[in-house]
Design a protein around this nucleic acid. Structure first.
Lengths: 179, 179
DNA sequence: ATTGTGCATTCACCTAGATTAACAATTGAA
DNA sequence: TTCAATTGTTAATCTAGGTGAATGCACAAT
């Protein structure tokens, strides 16, 4: 992953920024969708649906890339909000810099690997949302992202899982009682 | 997309196969996960959950690539079934051939583009599953894949959307009546 | 200390969609 | 042509999770 940082540093268009917790980097409807690489801290992306409810699409801790890929790729209006859950340091850059003409083949391959991994994770996400009850999604999340669960309030874990904070609370209650 | 076909043809490991409707190319639990490029016909990938219910992850008509990316990428056991919904002609290949050392930069970039697009589509899928009621997911599906809806039985559209065939049927009934 | 604000928990409802089952309509193989 | 199997429809329940509201807690700001 180090080499990605180097790529980003070498990119003249990439600029590092320090951000306070709570700062909103991108709002639904913005015309200029950006991509962010998180050096330190924690970002998240989310939508607000037609009923005003928040749904977290992903968390981005250190070394993750976060963006509204759909908006970038299909030139659609931005629909994802992106904000800071902790004081963070991020690099804002153009998505194409992962595959710059002057980067070596090895680096390109490594970056392609990153895309594959993300697709793999998204695949799992879709399958979980379709096929598993809330409790399974929760235990999977806790197993897969144990560090995240300490840094993120429960209500956000809930909206990441696709349920309400109340539902997660009662779920946790049941789990605790039955053990 | 033509160039992808050429890449596949040039790859010595890639082999073209003709398949009858109903053939199952890959089952959950198989050790050797493959990637398939669809030249003609229609494939799908799906899971069978703990209660024996089918959930379709994606359809792959002409020119699409279909695979259990999670299994390939993280060396996990295959969890996706892949089968033929129509008589098909497919090329089975190794995923790495999208980024072969001897392919030109332009081709690599184009292939990277394919990955971005897929991530964009998956993003939308997740957001729909989390944030939209079944009826919105259905109308979005019909708008986005109008040709597919003629080639695929309704019960499969339902399990792609994450609802039961009955639910989709009543949904369609309501929509027809209210118009 | 005191007020406020955000977070988690609990409870009493309500609703979208699942489940089960019965019944066409369509397809397809013998 | 006929019989069986696969699809789609409708309707009667059931349930996981949503909604809304009340309570208690932690902590930050004054």
């Amino acid at each position: 992953m180090e080499n990605l940082v180097n790529i980003l540093r070498a990119d003249s268009k990439a600029k590092s920024i320090s951000l306070k917790k709570g700062i909103i980097l991108q709002r639904a409807g913005d015309s200029n969708a950006s991509t962010f690489y998180v050096k330190k801290g924690l970002l998240r992306s989310y939508i607000i649906d037609s009923k005003g409810k928040e749904h977290i699409f992903m968390f981005a801790p250190e070394n993750w890339i976060i963006a509204d890929l759909e908006a970038l790729e299909f030139n659609e209006p931005v629909q994802l909000f992106i904000d800071c859950l902790e004081d963070s340091e991020v690099i804002s850059f153009n998505k194409d810099c992962l595959f710059k003409a002057d980067s070596s083949k090895e680096k390109i391959f490594e970056n392609a690997q990153l895309l594959y991994r993300r697709i793999g994770k998204l695949q799992r996400r879709v399958l979980m949302l379709m096929g598993s009850p809330a409790i399974d999604r929760y235990t999977y999340f806790m197993r897969t992202y144990p560090k995240l669960s300490n840094r993120v309030p429960q209500r956000m874990i809930a909206t990441y899982l696709g349920i309400t904070p109340q539902a997660l609370s009662t779920l946790r209650g049941k789990m605790a009682r039955s053990r």
